[in-house]
Simulated scan of single mutants.
Amino acid sequence: MPAATTEQSLNVISLILHAGVVVQLVMFALLLASLYSWYLIARLSIGFKKAGQQDQQFNKIFWSGAELATLFKNAQTKPNREGLENIFHDGYSEYHKLQKRQANLQQSLDGTERILRVSLSREQAGLEHGLSALASIGSVAPYVGLFGTVWGIMTAFIGLSSAEQVTLATVAPGIAEALIATAIGLFAAIPAVLAFNHFTAKGESLYENRALFAEEMSARLQRQTLAPELED
């Protein structure tokens, strides 16, 4: 019988079911936060992988010797442009408009670089959507779990105040029920923090590569514009 009692007291599901209403609500909220964080992790992982592959593919095409005007026409035919291709499209579109208005070389390059930076920031913001939620879950979940633990311990001791005899057997279940909230909080927070750090580093690396592409594109546009003048 003692062995059966010990096994029952260590049953996590049983402890959760016997916890107070407030502690159960805290656990449920943390469970939802954990599921949401794993959804974000999966979505960000797929998004970053797809973005890396698309950028690598377009970079090869960009440096294959194809004319910029040809690349621009090809990009115009794609309604769902993403990554470097969309950044290139926005930048070249602005450059083409300024050239039609007979802007000088410096004005055209300055305007193109501004649009490239705006497009780059827009693409990066869309790619990193969800990182702030991961950061919030990682930082808040342990404190929410601690709140559930403190509340559960308070409730357990209040219930014991009316008991005639207090033993470890009467105290342990209430404390164990309360501590589960902290455990669930850590279970939700640790993957979220690790994923946030991982995707932040990947985002910075991707941003640097795209920013380098924008500079290379500006240099290529400058060479393309100066070439006819040098021939004259």
Rank of each mutant, 00 (worst) to 15 (best):
Ile87Thr: 04
Ile87Trp: 00
Ile87Asp: 01
Ile87Asn: 00
Phe88Arg: 01
Phe88Ser: 02
His89Ile: 07
His89Cys: 02
Gly91Glu: 00
Tyr92Asp: 03
Ser93Arg: 08
Tyr95Lys: 03
Tyr95Asp: 04
Tyr95Met: 10
His96Ala: 09
Lys97Val: 12
Lys97Ile: 11
Lys97Ser: 15
Leu98Ala: 13
Leu98Tyr: 04
Ala103Val: 02
Ala103Lys: 03
Ala103Asn: 04
Asn104Ala: 03
Leu105Asn: 08
Gln106Pro: 02
Leu109Asp: 09
Leu109Trp: 02
Leu109His: 04
Gly111Asn: 09
Gly111Asp: 07
Gly111Ile: 02
Glu113Ala: 13
Arg114Tyr: 08
Arg114Leu: 10
Arg114Thr: 15
Leu116Cys: 08
Leu116Thr: 05
Val118Ala: 05
Ser119Gln: 03
Ser119Glu: 03
Leu120Tyr: 00
Ser121Met: 07
Arg122Gly: 07
Glu123Met: 01
Gln124Met: 14
Gly126Pro: 10
Gly126Leu: 10
Leu127Trp: 00
Leu127Glu: 00
Glu128Asn: 11
Glu128Thr: 15
Glu128Val: 08
Gly130Ser: 03
Leu131Glu: 11
Ser132His: 14
Ala135Lys: 02
Ala135Phe: 01
Gly138Pro: 00
Gly138Lys: 00
Val140Glu: 01
Val140Asp: 04
Val140Ser: 13
Ala141Val: 04
Ala141Gly: 02
Ala141His: 05
Pro142Phe: 01
Tyr143Ser: 11
Tyr143Trp: 13
Val144His: 01
Val144Met: 01
Leu146Glu: 12
Gly148Glu: 04
Trp151Asp: 09
Met154Ser: 12
Thr155Ala: 13
Phe157Arg: 13
Phe157Ala: 09
Ile158Ala: 11
Gly159Lys: 14
Leu160Ala: 06
Ser162Gly: 10
Ser162Val: 06
Ala163Thr: 15
Ala163Leu: 11
Ala163Gly: 08
Gln165Cys: 01
Val166Gln: 06
Val166Asn: 06
Thr167Asn: 09
Leu168Met: 05
Leu168Ala: 15
Thr170His: 08
Val171Gly: 03
Gly174Glu: 09
Ile175Val: 15
Ile175Ala: 09
Ala176Glu: 10
Ala178Ile: 07
Ala178Ser: 08
Ala178Asp: 08
Leu179Cys: 06
Ile180Glu: 03
Ala181Glu: 07
Ala181Asp: 05
Ile184Asn: 08
Gly185Cys: 06
Leu186Val: 14
Leu186Lys: 10
Leu186Gly: 12
Phe187Lys: 13
Phe187Thr: 13
Ala188Asn: 13
Ala188Glu: 08
Ala189Asp: 09
Ala189Cys: 12
Ile190Pro: 14
Ile190His: 13
Pro191Tyr: 09
Ala192Glu: 11
Val193Arg: 08
Ala195Ile: 10
Ala195Phe: 04
Ala195Asn: 10
Phe199Met: 11
Thr200Gly: 13
Thr200Cys: 11
Lys202Asp: 07
Lys202Gln: 14
Gly203Val: 06
Ser205Phe: 07
Leu206Pro: 02
Leu206Lys: 08
Glu208Trp: 06
Arg210Leu: 05
Arg210Ala: 09
Leu212Asn: 15
Leu212Met: 10
Leu212Pro: 07
Phe213Asp: 03
Phe213Glu: 02
Ala214Arg: 02
Ala214Phe: 00
Met217His: 00
Ser218Glu: 12
Ala219Glu: 11
Arg220Phe: 03
